[in-house]
Design a protein around this nucleic acid. Structure first.
Lengths: 148, 148
DNA sequence: TTACAACAATTGTATATACAAATGTATGTG
DNA sequence: CACATACATTTGTATATACAATTGTTGTAA
């Protein structure tokens, strides 16, 4: 991946700017790859993330603030995100009996089954995205990311 | 930045998955920072990018396909992106006289003036985002990003 | 007990982005 | 020249996301 070539520029870019641009280009590539593998399941990355959180609850229902707290990318509208999961039959929502302000969201049987398939697809995507990295380089990446 | 803490999980995440999640968390942070500094100028990162490309043309008008080609993040609707720049008086658009399918987009005086200020703000953001990195680490990052 | 603040989720609205279809223009072939 | 094809942009439509305002509920202090 050559930055200057991709954005078709001939001038030299200051290292900091170049790093940010480089990061964004990688981000685009990752997003493309992930959207592609999730597409057959008709869920966005965010929806997939919520499904995984719900499964991680192991039966214990989650409310919206919990979901928001645990999502990789926090959203300003988890209600509507969950709406999408409901309409696909992947999740279930009812108001919490002990506190009717809250809502209890769970993953359905169908949701779990689909999620299993999505997991495989995601693993594939991850392997593809990181195919050129060995163990040591991955650790290096994580170390550097810690500095952000 | 501790991944497990941010997404509030206690289980250990496989290194590849962790790397992708870590990347996304960094991405969120970068986006927040950049949106924040561009907000006063009422332009999105994409619009800012187009303005910079237009300036880089040094008077030579650009058409939509050229813009798309050079953008860091390719968009499926550059027409409407340019609409926004027009409505702010930052850019100008006319149909190309030699080929009326094409369109000639240029940056306006006002656009250049505002862009100068945005540049300063962006530099600030870049410095802030990368404040914990020294030269060598930045080069390391760029080297690793090349592997994607 | 009422009044008020804090909480949790939902709704309204605006903008951003993705994708497909449509429009208008230019070019090449019989 | 008529036609088909390719090109460049625009428009329509659907979804995603951001932010603010609203609704309904609970807890609490006077």
């Amino acid at each position: 991946m050559n930055v200057e070539e991709i954005i078709k520029t001939d001038r030299s870019i200051p290292l900091k700017s170049r790093t940010i641009i480089h990061f964004m280009l990688v981000n685009n590539k990752i997003n493309e790859e992930i959207s592609a593998v999730l597409k057959p399941y008709d869920v966005s990355l965010q929806q997939f993330n919520v499904l995984r959180i719900l499964r991680g609850q192991k039966g214990r229902p989650a409310n919206l603030s919990t979901l928001n707290e645990r999502m990789v990318t926090k959203m300003s509208n988890t209600t509507r995100l969950v709406d999408k999961l409901l309409s696909k039959g992947y999740a279930d929502r009812k108001t919490c009996p002990s506190n009717r302000r809250k809502v209890e969201i769970t993953i359905t049987k169908k949701g779990e089954e689909e999620l299993k398939k999505m997991d495989l697809a995601m693993n594939q995507a991850e392997r593809k995205i990181l195919q050129n990295f060995d163990q040591k380089e991955l650790e290096q990446l994580n170390t550097l990311f810690n500095k952000f």
